[in-house]
Design a protein around this nucleic acid. Structure first.
Lengths: 214, 214
DNA sequence: CACAAAATAGGTTGATTTTCCCATTATTAG
DNA sequence: CTAATAATGGGAAAATCAACCTATTTTGTG
């Protein structure tokens, strides 16, 4: 299965979803007719001998306009169509087991069975990265480190490291202490800096930090 | 530049080339008319006001047939179209700039221009992950965190966080302090634990920690 | 609840692509 | 070298998609 009619339309839906809009909003964004991606445009009205309706495909030119407007790369879109937006598998074992025999070859490369697998965010997962400058987040984040931020995940939990933007435009990376209906309590990553408590109305958005370069 | 007329046709040519055939042979393989990919089908004969001929695009359905017949994945084809088979980009800006206007929408999603791009390791890059257990590496790595390790990179530098395996089978994550011809000096991530200095002969391998989950 | 805006369904027309056709050129097999 | 096959160029008919239009439903806002 390489590229099916379903996949291509699913990718368009997923792309719309990522941009927090609808298929018709996406079409308008791309300069196309807002009805271009209607469900009614995804299958022809005439019926094939098999009894199925004939599938309709968006034109490549429309796809190109879509990518142009959203700034997304063709390969990212292709990954969306393949439903591989979740990421890719990387072998994983527990740190405590790493000392045992049989997991590595002599050069330190993973070897044999017994490895689990984790998915690493791929390019089209909607994450973005921020580059740290300065020493205000030591020892956790050093100058030049990059943190990978997930703006989608809204079920944040205590202990999560987050990037918070206030309505005044201030951006900070902190650890989430408490998230109540009215307030957001944050602990500084660097203990020399003061903790913060923000009224929820002051908070423009919160996004979880999922990975950090080392 | 996301997906241009040139790119899509170049990808078709490249695909034909990869299969040791011609555009017309490729078309036949896909069950299309052998003339489908003729040069004369790539631009219309009518001339635009600009003096250029109007570009013509292959239909998405034809592309799907192409991929079906060749067994190639959509994402691979997309990489062909982009002329690269390399990594993938995730948008990046400096943390200090994140407070400025124009980089995020109201929901905290990246927006507009001005974003740089970083590439992420792909599944085939030979990295692996280790899951931390216990509190011996606090505050940097917490229980359950996963660190992504690169066993390839051999030009380690001072300050790098590394996983070291000794010839006796001990595995540790430390910060590299000094790497001399005879010795490896390591600093504990948790200051409550002692630093280490290993003779190089004791070291089976060293691998750099490139990313850590948060 | 009322209203406006957006999104969607369904159909028609115009635009674009594929197929089919044939002629010419290039490549391969004997 | 010759013949057969494949590849390509160019054009017209058929197939298919996008734009356009309107009606209906859904969503968002006060």
């Amino acid at each position: 299965m390489t590229l099916s009619h379903n996949h291509i339309w699913a990718a368009i839906d997923a792309l719309a979803n990522r941009l927090n809009t609808t298929p018709s909003g996406l079409a308008r964004l791309a300069g196309l007719d807002p009805t271009s991606f209607n469900k009614s445009k995804r299958a022809s009205s005439d019926i094939l001998p098999s009894g199925q309706s004939r599938p309709r495909w968006p034109s490549t030119e429309s796809l190109a306009k879509l990518l142009e407007a959203t700034g997304i790369k063709f390969s990212e879109f292709a990954l969306l169509a393949e439903g591989r937006s979740g990421g890719q598998g990387i072998p994983l074992i527990g740190f405590a087991q790493a000392g045992n025999e049989g997991f590595f070859d002599d050069s330190g490369f993973p070897l044999g069975q017994g490895w689990d697998e984790i998915t690493f965010p791929s390019v089209n997962s909607g994450l973005y990265a921020l580059e740290i400058s300065g020493d205000s987040m030591l020892p956790l984040y050093r100058d030049g480190d990059r943190i990978l931020v997930d703006p989608h995940n809204q079920n944040l939990r205590k202990g999560d490291r987050v990037v918070v933007k206030t309505t005044e435009g201030e951006v900070m990376a902190k650890e989430l202490v408490r998230l109540s209906a009215r307030q957001v309590e944050l602990r500084s990553l660097n203990p020399e800096f003061p903790d913060r408590a923000l009224d929820r109305l002051q908070v423009a958005w919160i996004a979880r930090i999922v990975w950090a370069s080392q």
